[in-house]
Structures are given as C-alpha cells and as structure tokens.
Simulated assay, not measured.
Amino acid sequence: MSESYSRFAAWRAQHAAAFAASFGRLARRPFSSGLSLGVMAIALALPLALAWSLLQMEQLASRVQASRAIHVFLLPDAAVAQAERLADGLRTDAAVAAVRVKTPEQGLKEFRASSELANAVSILGENPLPPVLVVEPADGDERALVARLQQLPDVEFVQHDGVWQRRLQAWLGFGSRLLILLGAVFALGAVLAVANNIRLDIATRETEIAVLQQLGASDGYIRRPFLYAGGLLGLSAGVLALAILIAAAAYIQPSLLALIGSYGSGFRFAPVPLWSPAAVVAGAVGLGVLGAYLAVGHYLRLTRPVDL
C-alpha cells in the first residue's frame, strides 16, 4: 500500500469520524438544534418567497412588453378610407414599425368574442365602434410618437400602456433591490443562528477542546466537526425552506389563479429554474459552514494557548 493512499485513507477516516460525531451531537440536542434549524429555515424562506414573486412579476412584465401596440381611435363618423390614408402616412415614420387598420366590423367581432356586453351592443342595431389604427412603435421614446398621434386629424383617443410599463419596470427594479437587501439581512440572521448553536456546543466541550490543544491538535482538526455540524444545519434548513415555499405556493396558487382568471387573463405561473433548488441548498450549506467557522474561530483565538 502506497504512502499517498495511506494518507488519503487516514484523511477520509478523520472526516468520516468528524461527520458522524457532529451528526450524533446534533441528534442528542434536538430542541436547540430544532430551534436553530427553524430560525435558519424561516430566514431562508422569506427572501425565497420574494424571489419567487419577482419571477412571476417578470413574466407578467414580459407579457406587457410584448404588447406595446398603440391604439388610435378615430371619430365615430370617420370612414375606413380615411383610416387607411392615415396608416399610409404613418408607415413612412421612422418611429413606427408597423401599422394596421382595424375596421369597425373587426372591432365588433372581437368585442363580441371577448366581452359579456356583446348582447347589449347587438340591441343598438348599428355598430358604434370607430375605425382603429393599431400602431407598433419602433425602438425609442414612445411618448413623442403618442403625442404626434394625438395631433392627427379625426383622432378622438390614443390608448397607450407605456406609463404602466414604466411603472411596472420601476417596481421590478425596486423589488430586485429589496430582494438583495432582505437576502443579505436574512443570510446574516441564518449565520448568527448557526453560530449561536455551535457556540452552545463549544461550551459543552471546553475541557475536551483544551485537552486537544494541549496535545498539539491543530485548529483545523478542532474546527472540523463543528464545520460539519454547521453544514448539516444548513443542509437541513435549506431543504426545510424549500418545503415551506412549495407548500405555501401550492396553497395560494389555486385562489390566485382564480382571481386572475376572473379578469379574463390567461396568466400562468412561471416555472422555477431547475438549478434553483440545488443553488438554495448549496447556499444554505455555505451559510451554515460560515456560521460555524466564525464561532469556532472566535473561540480558538480566545483560548490558545490554554493552561490546564
């Protein structure tokens, strides 16, 4: 057996023993371990819930951005031929990507298909809808184009959702910054929760640690089982946080979809990327290891050298 293999086997045995000892100590203190686990899971679940909400809002924003058309409603007595002449003039505008004319007959057909008031319109006996120009703007400032469209002859009203789009983007930007801030705050809370649990574990093993230090054990050897304990807490907290989020989403989705559907929207929740759960668990493990490292490092700096 080679020397390198023997060293690897010894290293593997040390880590296996440290992992088993850490798991056993956490299991022997279920109450304190459970408190730390619960605090850390909640600290992770809250920013995860905000991130999930932002994901759905971004999907909604993409649907809004995909419908950038400007609807130019002409006067009720305007002829379709006049609408065609206006459309021909707009097609030469560099700020306009495309223009199409929606006739009153086409508008009434769409209205009957999408509105519960279709029967009321039929009672009128005549089509009250005017010709409409559907203008697709090119990239650039759409507000200037809207202002020019409002000055066209026979134009009664110009409908454009640009203000709503800008407000939605502003809210998404605010939500992203809030997510970063809350994520940092709750990540710090998770680290402190693990550090407090490890500190309690250290307090029960002070004599054992002192003996190891006197025998010449390195800081890495003493720190190793605590790092495994922090990693186990982080792993459990990450899985629990994902379970909380999945349960909460499953609970609110039916009622929320029913509410959105009552407005005639076909919105569907965006799927969570496949890599996200693994990233959450890995991040939780990292936070647990960091909390344990800080707690043990602080203790070792205070107690070396140790006199028995």
Rank of each mutant, 00 (worst) to 15 (best):
V96D: 01
Q150P: 00
V135N: 02
V163E: 12
K102P: 00
N119S: 14
N119P: 03
D154R: 12
E116W: 15
L145S: 01
P104T: 01
A120C: 07
Q165D: 11
E116Y: 14
R148C: 06
V135C: 09
L149F: 11
V155H: 06
L108E: 02
L133Y: 09
P104H: 05
L145V: 00
P131F: 00
Q151Y: 06
L133Q: 03
L145Q: 00
P131R: 00
A138Y: 08
L124V: 11
G107W: 02
E136H: 12
R112G: 09
E116L: 15
P153A: 06
E110D: 13
F157E: 15
S114E: 13
I123V: 14
D154E: 14
A118S: 10
R91L: 13
A95P: 05
Q106W: 08
L149E: 00
Q165G: 13
P137F: 04
T103C: 11
D139Y: 13
F111Q: 00
T103M: 08
T103E: 02
D154T: 03
D154S: 11
G140R: 04
R100L: 08
L108K: 03
V132W: 01
F111L: 12
A95T: 10
A118Y: 06
N127C: 11
V146R: 04
R91F: 08
L149A: 04
V146C: 06
P137C: 07
L117A: 13
Q165C: 08
K102G: 10
V155S: 07
S114D: 10
S115K: 08
G125N: 06
V163A: 13
V134C: 05
G107R: 02
S122H: 09
A113P: 04
K109E: 12
L129A: 10
V99A: 04
V155T: 03
P137T: 00
H160W: 15
D141G: 08
T92F: 15
D141V: 06
R100T: 10
G107C: 05
D161E: 13
K102F: 14
E136G: 03
P128A: 11
V121H: 05
L133I: 03
L129S: 06
T92C: 04
V134Y: 08
L124N: 10
V121N: 02
A118C: 06
S115D: 08
V158F: 07
Q150K: 14
D93E: 12
A118F: 09
